[in-house]
Structure formats: C-alpha cells, structure tokens
Amino acid sequence: MIMVTGGTGFIGNVLIRQLSNLGYPIKLLIRPSKASPNFPIGVPLEVAISSFSDAKGLRAAMKGVDIVYHLASAESLGRKAELTPVDVQGTEMLVQAAAQAKIDRFIYLSHLGADSSSAYPALKAKGRAENAIRNANFPYTIFRSAIAYGERDHFSNGLAFLLKISPFFVPLPDNGSMLLQPIWVDDLVNALIWTIDMPQLANEIIEIGGPEYLTFKEICLIISEKIGVKRQFFNVPPVYLNWLTEILEIITPNFPTSVFWMDYLASNRTTALDALPRMFSLNPARMNQRLDYLEGKNFRKNWWKFILRRKRTIPRWD
C-alpha cells in the first residue's frame, strides 16, 4: 500500500494517476475539512482523514502502508501559509508515525536550495523537514526538485495570466536574469515512482531538474509566444516587487503569484543537466515542447472560477 500526502494538489494528482495506472493500491491522506477535496476523478483509492497534529490519527492512517510519498505543503497559500505547523511540525509527526509503522520507504518532495539555515522561509521549512526525515529510522529518498510545470500548475499558468492581463509592460526582478531549470511534471513523477524499485537510492538526497537552464525572462518569452502576446520587460528591484506581490495577495484573493516566488527568484535554482538521464535513463522534455495546455485558454474567466471555487473551500495541504 502506498500513502500519498498532498495528493489533491497539482503534482499529487499526477502521481496518484500514474501509480493507479501501474496497479499500486493507494491511500490518500487528507486533513479534516467541511469542503470536498479535489480528488483525482476515476481513480480507485482509500482515504484516511487525519491532521498532522493528530498522532493517533496518523498512526491509524499508517496501517497497512509500505511506502509514503510526502508532498503536502502549505506553500500554495502564499502569505497566509503556516509553514512551521504544516511543513515542519507536520512532517515531524508524520515521520514519527511512519517510523512506528516500520515502512519500507519514505519519499519526500523538496526544493532545490532547501536548507534549514536559509534566509527564505519556504526553503528553510523544507530544509528542516529534510532534517527530520534524515534522522528517522527508516529508508528515505529526498528529491530536491526544480520548479515543476504542467496543466494544473501555479507557475506557468500564473505567468501566462500575468502576461495576458499586463498592459504591454511586465516588471522583472533583476532583469529576469536568474536561472531556473523547469521540469515537466510527468518527468518528475516518473522519477518519483521509479525510485520504488531502485534500492540504491535509499537514504539519498537527489537533485533533479529539466534538460535546460532558462532565465526567468526567457521563460516569460516562451510563454508569451505560446499564448500569442508580445510584452516589453523592465527591471524592478526585487524588494519592491516583493512588496507589490504582498499587496496584491492582500487585496486580490488567490492572486496567481505568491511571496514565495520571490524566494525562488532570489538566486539561480539549478542542478546538473544530466541528473535524470544519468540516474533514471530518462530524457526529459524541454519546456517549449510541453506548453500546449496554455493555448486558447481564457485566463481571466478561469481565474474568476478559481477564486470563487477557493472561496468556498478550506485551505488544504497542497
């Protein structure tokens, strides 16, 4: 039995679908909520309900579980995110329950740049969560991933929305010169799944990303071309753009950027280009090959639907 946390989110949905297609029995861990979670449609799975602060509930959820995929995070809530209770303390509680259940493998999705001493809250929280996993008494694999993109992501869809509604000019921090290494969600999920059958990756921290280094400006240009808009870019000091992002998050519900974007864009977020081919014999997709889902999308209409839907729900872990 495989347990997945954060399975109602963007990456979690893809992971659960692929695990199900391969015939794995799946248990989805969700927090108690009055709202209906975003379950993967048409996928047979077992559901366990427990908060990360409920030790008894987590122990019960671990019954029959052999492998845990821990993807849950509060990051998507932006400035409202409670990273310490969810990403740090939640992981510590989950680790304790997994250790007591004597699971076979604990697989955690982290970020490039994760460090418990980082000055950036999201990366610091991920680093502290990693430490809890490394100190546990079970085999683990930690994936420090570059930013993932795909049909339901916040990254490429958020950028496309901003580029679409902007009045010809788009602000970029430090001229958009920082390097990123976007990874197609299917490539990321394949690596996560194949790890199950790779005992040599037990007790390892793996850094993975896509097959190319792209500046943030280059990514904006690729997305602009895909959605059929032309924009001029101008430099804005990161601190001012961070302030603007915080203001927009306050006055606009579920604005498609978050304060954590500035953390990611504060420096280069890259790793070795050959990581996926070398470790998984996987030839990863280039970003401009996998953005067809952006074509013809009505971002304004979809955004309002997203806002109205999220207003009726209670924030989840994804």
Results as ranks from 00 to 15, higher is better:
39 F>A: 08
158 G>M: 10
170 V>M: 15
183 I>H: 04
151 E>R: 09
228 G>K: 15
249 E>K: 05
111 H>F: 06
140 Y>L: 03
162 L>Q: 12
211 P>T: 15
16 I>A: 03
104 D>N: 05
116 S>G: 12
74 A>M: 06
157 N>I: 13
151 E>G: 04
143 F>W: 05
142 I>K: 00
247 I>K: 08
270 T>P: 07
11 I>R: 00
55 A>L: 14
36 S>T: 12
17 R>L: 01
317 W>Y: 12
294 L>H: 12
106 F>T: 11
194 W>M: 05
60 A>V: 08
269 R>I: 10
193 I>Q: 03
21 N>W: 06
268 N>I: 08
166 S>M: 12
159 L>M: 13
201 L>K: 02
7 G>D: 02
88 V>R: 15
31 R>Q: 12
121 P>W: 05
206 I>T: 11
44 P>G: 08
126 K>S: 09
250 I>M: 07
158 G>P: 02
120 Y>Q: 09
76 S>T: 11
71 L>C: 05
114 A>M: 03
266 A>I: 05
74 A>N: 12
34 K>W: 00
274 D>E: 14
240 Y>S: 13
50 S>L: 05
4 V>M: 01
295 E>H: 12
162 L>E: 00
35 A>S: 15
161 F>C: 00
227 I>L: 07
103 I>G: 05
240 Y>Q: 10
239 V>S: 14
243 W>E: 03
129 A>I: 06
61 A>L: 10
90 G>W: 06
13 N>F: 00
186 D>H: 11
122 A>L: 11
46 E>M: 07
246 E>I: 11
40 P>V: 02
156 S>W: 13
174 D>K: 06
303 W>P: 00
141 T>L: 04
301 K>H: 13
171 P>I: 04
86 V>K: 10
258 S>C: 07
27 K>P: 07
232 Q>Y: 10
7 G>Q: 04
137 N>M: 09
11 I>S: 04
217 K>E: 13
219 I>D: 08
123 L>F: 14
133 I>N: 08
206 I>R: 08
67 I>Q: 05
30 I>S: 04
266 A>D: 12
142 I>N: 11
155 F>N: 08
104 D>W: 00
229 V>M: 13
